[in-house]
Design a protein around this nucleic acid. Structure first.
Ligand code: MN
Ligand code: MN
Ligand code: ZN
Ligand code: ZN
Lengths: 137, 137
DNA sequence: AATGCAAATGCAAATCGTTTGCATTTTTAA
DNA sequence: TTAAAAATGCAAACGATTTGCATTTGCATT
């Protein structure tokens, strides 16, 4: 429950109608969506928006860290979620796509030990858990 | 260092020239490769192979669990690695693509607690770490 | 070793998610 | 209110992946 206009401004993004619609949609949806799902959802609301605009907005949001982009396993379609303020990960139902945010990232300490062992500088990680939710299992 | 022919047979896959070439390439490469990189590497060896065959073989290998398919962040190209016998994850250099296998999966115990908390049945997870290797950082 | 069938391959074309060029509209700041 | 910069819509392009179909190959059987 944020002030979307403020959130955009803080990230140096112009406050367009489509951006506000998209960010509101994502935060109400509270789950992962493909670009096309977002596009269709907004169309259904009688809003004027174009699929390429959806992609451009998502790209901007990802770049600013407002949105996380990832890929469903065994699919080549990207999915997007609103990024929580705290670094977090999701548990995703493979059937209905219901998502749950994990209470914390289990990799913090782990990363440090790996950095020492491997001499890598770890900058990021990808983690998503998959399974079946209460209804679908 | 496996017997590739045996490995294919055990997975119910016919023992074709192209499949053997591909599995050998992947295990020597010891890292992630895109379908096209695989295709070009085999061409360079003067081997007769087609890009769509590479895709079909990789698909079969993924289905049989011989290969893991994942996606590089901020890219829509899939990458493939030979699956280790033990469940494992990779640390990948964002610059040179050098990969290191992590010594163990840090999520085992974590998953159990998450299952209890969320009522999900967790079947799988995706984890890759990204950063810069000793040479590239 | 020869045969036959199912599965695998090559090739070209299709598909589909995503990106881009460009003309038009909207936003923001002066 | 105005002008410049940025965002949008639309159509076309793009690139990774997939597919149809004719041909070849692997493998079990004779
Ligand atoms: Mn994390
Ligand atoms: Mn794991
Ligand atoms: Zn579900
Ligand atoms: Zn490197």
């Amino acid at each position: 429950m944020l002030d979307y206009k403020e959130s955009l401004k803080q990230h140096g993004l112009k406050n367009s109608k489509q951006r506000n619609l998209l960010i509101k949609l994502l935060s109400n949806a509270d789950g992962i969506m493909t670009a096309e799902e977002i596009y269709l959802a907004l169309k259904k609301q009688e809003e004027k928006i174009n699929l390429s605009t959806v992609y451009r907005i998502l790209e901007a949001f990802v770049e600013k860290g407002l949105v996380v982009k990832s890929t469903f396993p065994s699919s080549n379609t990207c999915v997007f979620t609103l990024k929580h303020l705290e670094h977090s990960h999701h548990l995703i139902c493979l059937k209905c796509k219901k998502t749950v945010s994990l209470p914390h990232c289990p990799l913090k300490e782990f990363e440090h030990s790996i950095e020492k062992e491997t001499n890598f500088n770890i900058t990021d990680h990808n983690l998503e858990l998959y399974g079946y939710c209460n209804n679908c299992k």
